[in-house]
Nucleic acid binder design. Structure first.
Lengths: 341, 341
DNA sequence: CTTTCCTATGATAACGTTATCAATTTATTA
DNA sequence: TAATAAATTGATAACGTTATCATAGGAAAG
């Protein structure tokens, strides 16, 4: 039973001091040693099979080289790309990433925040689970929020310009000749959805169209994508059976859009000939539906990368106190589900 | 500038020894102190705002309370549920989970293995990126593989019985009256796909059907789901334009199945009236397609949970050396894409 | 040749917890 | 009641690294 080798063993092996060995072998290369001694250390380390004890180093430096991501639910198709974007950036910089799901549950979310301070993460990227997420627990550790809501004006945030995105979608439908555009919108935990109604009314007013009140379809909020989808289906079915049909739907996210699509297909309504549907987000399922779902894409991988970059800046030079706000544009993706009237 | 409090500060505050304080406040509750002293310690800790320094504790005990998950790609719809299953179990047990994507790249995968030993993870759950993944780097740290391939007979593994799953799918189609069943299969990195051909031939022979050679559609392997989908589409298109159509397709995963569905829809082939399609896995996109995709579901959340449990057992009592092999059944999910001939 | 200054290396003290063993108190038994 | 066993608590040594300061060894300047 031979114990694990330490820098002291390496020092003995190569006849140099522990300090010098440490200088050569520690993570960051603050070059302060002769090439020759570096060689000596390296070969000695190699010879006796030295491996750096990260736990000891982390302890001594009091930083874990770990950042945390807090999101509601990784099975929600919106998030995996986001996480991937963060992970890639962080890996390049030598940080580990711990990812925590709170199931849209503020209690669990708070637990996770507690956990973060306990476990000394160097930083955090957080997608708030609901409108009132309390971030005070995180005081002392740098973090970035994945949102564009004005609820968090005092913090660093990054998000897509959803309002502009919705406008783009409506304009797209309008430019295809649609004048009877309906809004399919779901309740939301993470932000107040009322702005969508406002924007919708404003759009109708602006274009001089008639009362949009007949073209509002709402569906209940649900935790999982599957349930959201089913509820959206139900709302669509009742709406279509009770109302004069619009020529187009704007759905506030792709899951709702796919529900609209499926219901329309089932009812024999031809998409896009009789009905156009556009969603929002750009999830994979929208690529494989029939017809493929037009959407206003949020580039989640990009958001993740930028969020990671902002966080890294904060972690590395905590002196910079300016709050950063990044707003990214959405991008129209025209697919088969939208067409001229 | 007041420094962070330590157990020594707590000890001073409550007039007990450092050791006693530690006994009360350290993670695992090996009850060895009187209730009254526990109270004293707790309230003192509360009063001065003590927070346990996890980094120090990890260092001292030489374990990180962290396990790693290594998978090819989190944006692949197969994996998020798997990860969620693992995370939930691990969170309950007080472990952090670090998740690493290798982009199907063996080089990155190997880097991640290196990283795991460097960073002293307590265990790992690994979905091998390709058939020949070399696990020797991980010697010394307990791990579980997410596979059912016989390539890894010497290791602990957990996976679905894909062969039985494929049989279930074929039987389902057969029982609906289908006699011209085609196989849509993609290349695969993580396992040799040839068993599918064998099983397919065997099925045909068993049922006394004619040569299945005309009903083989293959498509190239691709890294991302989107690309896989597009390649499957292409294969489907050329196949349908050159061959007498089968009455049903079995696709080796849902992404391919969705491609078949979309192409059929576009060509005006009615599903399931003229063509049935069944996939495999049970990803979300299959629920929202039109028609919803019948499939043979792999319960990934369950796999994740069990994998986590096996790993925990190994981590906690390393004496148990028996190799564990868990094989879970697949489950037929009948949706709109399959029907009688 | 001496002095000054820089660079490379050495010696050693933390870091905050856990683990070990000794000392003390309390409970049990004869 | 005394003796013994058990349950608590106390004192203190690690753990392996990084960080600080001191020292030696050369180069540059006078």
């Amino acid at each position: 039973m031979n114990k694990r080798k330490t820098i002291i063993d390496v020092a003995k092996e190569c006849g140099l001091s522990q300090a010098t060995v440490a200088r050569v072998l520690n993570g960051q290369q603050n070059i302060q040693v002769k090439d020759k001694t570096r060689q000596r250390v390296m070969s000695a380390a190699q010879k006796i099979g030295y491996r750096r004890n990260t736990l000891a180093a982390n302890f001594r430096r009091q930083q874990s080289n770990t950042i945390a991501i807090s999101i509601p639910d990784i099975t929600n198709p919106f998030f995996p790309e986001l996480i991937k974007g963060i992970q890639e950036k962080m890996r390049d910089e030598g940080y580990s990433v711990i990812q925590l799901n709170n199931e849209w549950n503020p209690k669990i979310e708070e637990d996770h925040f507690q956990y973060m301070v306990q476990t000394c993460v160097d930083g955090a990227i957080i997608s708030p689970s609901h409108a009132g997420t309390d971030l005070s627990t995180l005081e002392g550790i740098p973090f970035v929020l994945l949102t564009n809501s004005d609820l968090y004006s005092e913090y660093d945030t990054i998000g897509n310009d959803s309002k502009e995105g919705m406008r783009i979608a409506l304009d797209h439908l309008y430019s295809l000749g649609h004048r009877k555009i309906a809004l399919l919108v779901g309740g939301s935990m993470s932000s107040d959805p009322s702005w969508r109604y406002d924007l919708f009314s404003e759009f109708y007013r602006e274009k001089g169209l008639t009362n949009p009140a007949n073209f509002l379809v709402t569906c209940d909020y649900s935790v999982t994508s599957t349930l959201s989808f089913l509820q959206a289906r139900r709302s669509m079915e009742t709406f279509l059976s009770e109302n004069p049909p619009p020529t187009a739907f704007f759905a506030s996210n792709d899951i709702l859009g796919l529900a609209a699509l499926q219901v329309a297909n089932e009812k024999g309504i031809k998409v896009p000939e009789q009905l156009s549907v556009i969603g929002m987000d750009g999830i994979f399922s929208g690529e494989v539906s029939y017809p493929a779902l037009s959407t206003v894409r949020k580039n989640r991988s990009e958001i993740g990368g930028i969020a990671a970059q902002i966080l890294l800046d904060k972690v590395k030079k905590p002196k910079d106190w300016s709050t950063k706000k990044v707003v990214l544009p959405c991008k129209l993706i025209e697919r088969g589900s939208t067409g001229p009237v």
